[in-house]
Structures are given as structure tokens and as C-alpha cells.
Amino acid sequence: MRRALVTGGSGAIGGAICRRLAQCGLHVIVHGNTNAERAERVADEIRRSGGRADSIAFDVTDHEASTDALARVLEAGAIQVVVNNAGVHDDGPLAGMTFEQWRRVVDVSTHGFFNVTQPLLMPMIRSRWGRIVNLSSVVGVTGNRGQVNYAAAKAALHGAAKALALELASRGITVNVIAPGFVAGGMAETIDPAVIGATVPMKRAATTDEIAGAVAYLVSDEAAYVTGQILAIGGGLG
């Protein structure tokens, strides 16, 4: 059975991804950090539904902690699917942004991508099959006022995915990005629905299941020839 690691699996979007991948027959490792108990609840829900899942807790911004945690995971064999979903935002205009606001957002998305993905690559390469999916945002494509740090962090994932896709293409490993817009149950919960209606051509936010469905496709055998792509799920945005 192939194993999948989903960072930020304790959140609304991450949890939906975990449940969908379990339905696809993957053994899912649900990652959390400050929400370790929620990650275990997601894993328990999957197990009670007949799937296979475990939970794990570590800080993706801590290189040593990530390396140690993933070394323990790899004792049971390679991770074939990696979904880099962990992310935070700390908004404000750049003129008034603190360095800590900048660093926190970049650390989770960008350094977190390296800290999680790099230790898993050689076992994946040896198995000659793998799927890496980065969860980004349309903001990484279009930009957004008050989110220079978030846009920079997410755009970095786009470049990293395109470059890594070239490195791994001959090894049967694909690397892609999903760039959602507003997502119900995610960060869009703090946005006035009228703003979404006025901004999004389809007049609504995406559901977490719609995001999870796109992930499920990209990690499937049917998507074996899709790599280095940025898939916007924004209802017309992006």
C-alpha cells in the first residue's frame, strides 16, 4: 500500500485531502503541529471508516525536528505521496510589516517545503514512483494587497515545483501545484461573503472537497504525464 504524508492535515483543507486520499486506498499520515490532537482525530476518523492512517506532529519550520520525525516515518519504507499543505498567513502592508511577520509566513511554506520534501526524495527516487503536490494560492500568481509575504512564499513554491519536476521527471515522479482562491472552511472564513461574490466570477468559494478532488487526481496513476503544472482552482480567479 502506498503511503501519503499530508502536512497541515489537521486543518479543514488538509483534513479533506487526507480523507479523500484514504478513500483512494492510500495509507495516510496526517501531520499536525500545534493541532496534533486534531490530526489524530482526522486519522481516527479515517480508521473508523475502514481506511489506514496515522498521525504525526512536528514543526515544519524546524529542520532538525522535521528530519528526525521523517527518519522515523521512513523506517517503515518510502513515502510515495507528499502533499505540502501546511501554510499560514499574517497579513499587512509591507511598509508596516515586521520581519517576524515576513519570516513566519515564508518559513512555513518555503522552508517547510524543503524540510519535508528533501528527506523523502531518495527513497522515492529508488522506488521510481512518486507524487509531490504543493498547496499554494492564486495570490502566488496574481498578488494581493496586504499579502506580500504570503504571495512571495506561495510563488516560491511554484518555482520550486517547476524546477523539481524537471529533476525528477525521468524517475516516474511528478511535481505539481494547486493554487486555490477562496476556500470555504479555510482562510476564506474570515472574508465577507459579499467580497467573494464581487471578486470571484463563479460567485462562491471552493469547497474543501473540490480541492481534495484535485489533489486526488494529481496523485493518481491517471496523472502520470502531468508534471510541473500550476492548477488554479479559483472559480475564474488566477
Rank of each mutant, 00 (worst) to 15 (best):
F58A: 07
M122Y: 02
P180T: 00
N35V: 08
R128C: 06
V82Q: 04
F114T: 04
A214R: 01
F58H: 04
L121D: 01
T227E: 09
T98A: 14
G197H: 02
A163G: 12
S136K: 04
I125A: 15
V108C: 07
T208G: 11
G96I: 09
E222V: 08
D192M: 10
V108E: 02
I29R: 05
A39G: 14
N35I: 05
M124N: 05
G146D: 07
D44A: 15
G181R: 00
K154W: 08
Q80W: 04
A76L: 05
I196Y: 01
S137T: 07
A22H: 01
I13D: 09
E75P: 11
E75L: 14
G51C: 11
L70S: 03
A151F: 07
I178S: 00
L135W: 01
G213W: 01
Q147S: 10
E75Y: 04
A12I: 08
K162W: 07
V108G: 06
A198S: 14
V106F: 15
T174N: 10
N134D: 03
R128N: 09
G15D: 09
G14C: 12
F114D: 03
T110I: 08
A78F: 09
G77T: 00
V138G: 00
V195H: 03
V73S: 06
A165E: 09
D209N: 04
K162Q: 14
I173K: 07
R3C: 09
I173T: 03
I211S: 03
A169M: 14
A161T: 05
A205F: 00
F99C: 01
S109T: 13
L94R: 01
M97E: 06
G112A: 09
G228S: 05
S55C: 15
P93K: 12
S127I: 09
L168G: 03
V133L: 13
E64A: 15
P123D: 00
G25K: 06
F182R: 01
E37T: 12
G87D: 06
G185K: 02
S137H: 03
V226K: 04
V6D: 06
W102G: 14
M97Y: 03
A214W: 00
E189P: 09
G234W: 02
E167K: 09
D192S: 09
Y217D: 12
T190F: 10
Y217E: 13
A214Q: 08
V82L: 15
A216C: 04
S137R: 02
T207P: 03
